[in-house]
């Protein structure tokens, strides 16, 4: 590598001098090769999931498998639609995730408003406390949670799932909304108070309406967390109230162990809302990710 070229590949603003293309080529080739190799690892399983979901059983159950699909079918998706139990899991997932989103937005909005715009003793400790809740192992908490919910007759109820999901989604959502509220000028809220609005009115008539995009993003995030959860729904809900993740495990890894194409089709269906949600959330994603609280 010679020292003559003075415009490295990374400065996007300066126009590239004549010497640059010759130098950049090996770097870009290496980058493209890296992306290609990791791409095979990243997208190979996705490709295989898709192929299996649309391939007839006769072609799926053979060894060695065909890497390129020859026949196309929608029968596996039809099997899913015919399965009433899966329909119930889907409804449960929708109900629980939606209510989790609503409750999470409410609770985290109040908490984030408090952290963002008020100063009082113990505020920092409270913030650490909320943030810490994602560090505790859930399997350990579940030992007692199971007994508590059982004592109050809340096992196999939506409420047990909603309360659990909401609690573990709170840290991220509070931090997301706090970041949002921090950008709202204090003068806006003060002006309303001077005009005679009470504390509640400031929240519900000023703060929440101007924060609508942030609230939607937070709600979507909470929905996805509820939708994806496995261990709480597995433990606290029986067949009647179970959501899709444990429901699919019980259905396909139990009785119909060989129904791989159906399971792949179901996997696509479960993933769809989450993928759509993340495409919508892209703008908020990096901020949420860097707060280090997304997955626990």
């Amino acid at each position: 590598m010679t020292a003559t070229a003075h415009a490295p590949a990374r400065t996007a603003t300066t126009p590239a001098p004549a010497a640059t293309p010759r130098r950049r080529k090996p770097g870009n080739l290496g980058a493209a090769a890296t992306v290609a190799v990791i791409g095979v690892f990243a997208f190979g399983p996705v490709y295989w999931l898709l192929v299996t979901a649309f391939t007839p059983n006769d072609d799926v159950f053979r060894f060695p498998p065909r890497l390129w699909p020859e026949h196309f079918t929608l029968e596996h998706f039809a099997n899913l639609a015919d399965n009433a139990v899966l329909g119930r899991y889907l409804v449960n997932s929708l109900i629980v995730s939606t209510l989790t989103a609503v409750l999470t937005v409410l609770v985290s909005a109040y908490t984030a408003y408090s952290f963002s715009k008020f100063r009082y003793r113990g505020r920092r400790s409270l913030m650490s406390l909320i943030l810490a809740s994602q560090m505790f192992p859930q399997a350990l908490l579940l030992i007692t949670l199971y007994l508590v919910f059982s004592a109050y007759g809340l096992l196999n109820s939506y409420l047990a799932l909603i309360l659990s999901f909401t609690t573990f989604t709170l840290p991220l959502c509070v931090w997301m909304l706090k970041g949002f509220f921090d950008t709202i000028p204090n003068e806006l809220l003060e002006a309303a108070k001077v005009d005679g609005a009470g504390q509640g009115a400031v929240i519900h008539r000023i703060l929440l309406p101007v924060s609508l995009p942030g609230l939607v993003a937070t709600g979507l995030f909470a929905f996805i967390r509820g939708w994806n959860d496995f261990i709480f729904a597995l433990t606290l809900a029986g067949p009647a109230k179970q959501t899709l993740p444990p429901g699919l495990v019980n259905t396909y890894l139990g009785e119909f162990q060989a129904a791989w194409p159906d399971l792949m089709a179901a996997s696509l269906v479960v993933s769809l809302p989450v993928v759509i949600g993340f495409v919508v959330l892209q703008r908020y994603l990096v901020a949420g990710l860097t707060s280090g609280a997304v997955k626990g």
Binding site: Y110, R119, G122, R123, L140, L141, V148, L163, T167, V174
Partner: peptide
């Protein structure tokens, strides 16, 4: 300001802190 955090604190107490101690 403190009262606003109460709902979150109640959830934290019931779903994290109490089960942890228990």
């Amino acid at each position: 300001g403190f009262l606003l955090t109460l709902p979150a604190l109640v959830l934290f107490g019931a779903i994290v802190f109490y089960p942890l101690v228990g």
